[in-house]
Amino acid sequence: MSHLLNRLTPRRGLLLIGLVSALALGGALVAQHFFGLRPCTLCHYQRIPHATLVVLGGLGGLLPLGLSTRRWLLAVGCLVALVGLGLAGWHVGVEQHWWAGTASCQAGGAQATSLADLRAQLAAGPAQPACDEITWSLFGLTMAGYNVLVFSALALLAGALAGGAPRPK
């Protein structure tokens, strides 16, 4: 990994971080809109750090910024990735029934107590799945599990580049 870090400038690192998060976010949207995998509440929460990293990566990689500003953006990116890692880890724990999710993680939402409630629920469309329902997995890892891996790698990369030896922009 040190060989990769020696070749990666902060600017390229920010671009890479933004690209990886854009791919992760794009993959989630494709799974949702083309394959019908509806996201739960915690899935929606995990999209926020990815979107933030796309913005940070774009700003830091495309704007003419100095080295110290890019390193500051990398440090912020590391913190954002750690927040995403926490959310993804929490989601994995909910999926494995190690702990409970939020109140909004329950499937189906509120029960209709009147005809007007029922009409409102039907108009709103299908309810979000419960956060502990595993709707997709590959090689034993769910989307939240893959997010743990992605956010871990992004946090390590951003942290290493933020605090590394002096390099060119």
Rank of each mutant, 00 (worst) to 15 (best):
S152H: 04
D117F: 06
E95A: 11
T102C: 08
V80P: 01
L154K: 00
V80M: 08
R47D: 13
T102S: 12
V20M: 04
V150E: 09
R119N: 07
P49R: 08
G77H: 01
W99V: 06
T52R: 02
W90M: 15
L15A: 09
Q32S: 09
L74V: 05
A88E: 03
P10T: 00
G13N: 03
V83G: 06
W99S: 06
P10G: 02
S68T: 10
G84V: 04
G18D: 02
L23V: 15
L5I: 10
A153G: 11
A24M: 12
L79Q: 11
S137H: 11
N6C: 05
R12H: 08
V30L: 10
M143G: 07
T113P: 02
G164K: 00
G13F: 01
W136V: 12
R167Y: 00
I134Y: 00
G58N: 08
L29S: 14
A110Y: 07
V148S: 02
A22T: 07
G60R: 13
A28Y: 09
A130L: 06
Q121H: 08
M143L: 13
L23S: 08
A120M: 10
A158Y: 00
Y45P: 03
F34D: 06
A116C: 09
S114L: 09
L138T: 10
G145R: 05
D132Y: 08
G109N: 06
H44C: 14
H97V: 04
L118F: 10
L79G: 13
R11L: 13
F34C: 06
L138P: 01
P10Y: 00
S152E: 03
R7T: 04
A100N: 14
P166K: 04
V148C: 07
L118P: 02
L154Q: 04
N147F: 12
M1G: 12
A124G: 15
V92G: 06
L56T: 01
A22L: 14
L115F: 12
I17E: 02
P10A: 00
L161T: 01
L16C: 11
V76W: 01
L67W: 04
S152Y: 07
V148P: 00
P129W: 00
C105E: 09
N6Y: 10
L25D: 02
P49D: 09
S114P: 12
T102F: 14
W99H: 15
Q121C: 05
C131R: 04
P39Y: 03
W90L: 15
S114H: 09
L15M: 13
P39Q: 08
D132A: 11
S152R: 06
Q106W: 03
G27E: 02
R47M: 15
R71K: 05
A162P: 07
G57S: 05
L19S: 10
L5G: 00
A110R: 12
A124P: 15
H44N: 15
I48L: 14
E133D: 11
Q106D: 05
V148L: 05
L87G: 13
N6L: 11
F139Y: 11
A127I: 08
W136M: 09
A110H: 08
L122A: 09
